[in-house]
Simulated scan of single mutants.
Amino acid sequence: MAGQYGNEPMMEMFLFETSQLLEQLEQLILTCEKSNCYTEDTVNEIFRIMHTIKGSSAMMMQDSISTISHSMEDLFYFLRESKPQKIDNSALSDLVLEGVDLIKIEVEKLKNGDKADGNTSELQGRIKSLLSDFQMSNSSSNTVKDRKLLVNKEQQYYLSQDKTRINTAKYKNAFKATIHFEEGCEMENIRAYEIVHNIRDITDEFFHIPERIIEDDSCAEIIRQEGFKLFLRTDSSYEELHEFFMETLFLKDLELVQIEIDDYYRLYDEKQEITSKNISVSNRSSGEESEEIRETHSVSSQQNIISVNMTKLDKLMDLVGEMVIAEDMVIQNPDLKGMELENFQKASRQLQKITGEI
């Protein structure tokens, strides 16, 4: 079953980024172990990492990874919001490193083409127990705010055939978010899909531009040039939404604007009208092109077949793997930590772009 996900870009990206995040997390925990202290910045960074792994693994339907990362995220949410004074740093570090090891094992299974089916219940129980101990020993501290943003699970907004608004009072706020990702991060459409997947924890009433972000690969270039535009209605505040979007991986720029409810529906209608026109044009052109496609299919199919020496292909794949490893060793070199090297950062992003295309 090895190599099962070789042609699945989403799975490849998930495995690569999760491995990178686990390395960062492990280094953070080891640093905290040495200093016997978890700073506010470190807690925030660990929470962000666990939140990202939880969201991406849930999107990929990897329940074992999602559930354990969710438990670890809960733990650091408590630390971030309550800022407790009485914390057993050693016990915290040991438990988080156990979680990292478990996720690494699950990731390795997926890389080998096996199912990630590890039992996380025992470790989850110990994490919840540690969280309970922290809460009890710091019960005099400020109470943790409810972390869940308000979500109404009623039926999603829609338009009737006579364009009458249905259930317009469901959510009290409307927002427009424009997201730009870092240059060279690649697969912008898949990163946008991850935002869409996670936004369902906040609201079930939203739409986005471009629309077919998974089905149409050209959306990646549109997002790269114009940004990913997400329109939503929710009961969440501006601050809560801003915090949600700022946890997006490879986020370069965020423009979040609260809009009027009427503007939200006007923009929705405009998007639907454009979509209908595009479908109509597509249907007409597809009929005209079908004959040409049939005529050229046999020729193009023959031209797409080449003969490759498997030994040389295997060697090429090995060299690519070694190049990616060498790239990681250079970019993640601890000697570079804290240094302001603008030209190096630009060069490293270009290198990542090239190896990503390979």
Rank of each mutant, 00 (worst) to 15 (best):
Q155W: 01
E327F: 14
Q62W: 02
S307P: 01
T120R: 09
Q258N: 11
H197C: 04
E239G: 01
L97F: 00
M339R: 15
T164G: 00
K170W: 03
C185Y: 03
L131H: 08
Q345H: 08
F250G: 04
E247R: 15
H297Q: 11
R233P: 02
N36S: 12
M317Y: 14
L21C: 05
T143I: 12
S236G: 14
Q24C: 04
E186F: 09
L131C: 10
D101Q: 09
Q62P: 00
E73A: 01
G118K: 07
S348I: 06
F228L: 05
R126L: 14
E288L: 15
A58E: 02
L131A: 05
I274H: 11
F134M: 15
K148W: 10
E289S: 14
M317H: 11
E17F: 03
I261Y: 01
Y264S: 06
M59W: 05
F206D: 00
E215K: 15
K229Y: 02
V196A: 05
G118F: 08
D117I: 06
S300R: 15
G356C: 06
E255A: 09
F47S: 00
E183F: 09
M323L: 13
T296N: 13
L92I: 04
P210F: 03
L92H: 03
I166F: 09
R212A: 13
E211D: 11
D235F: 01
D314S: 13
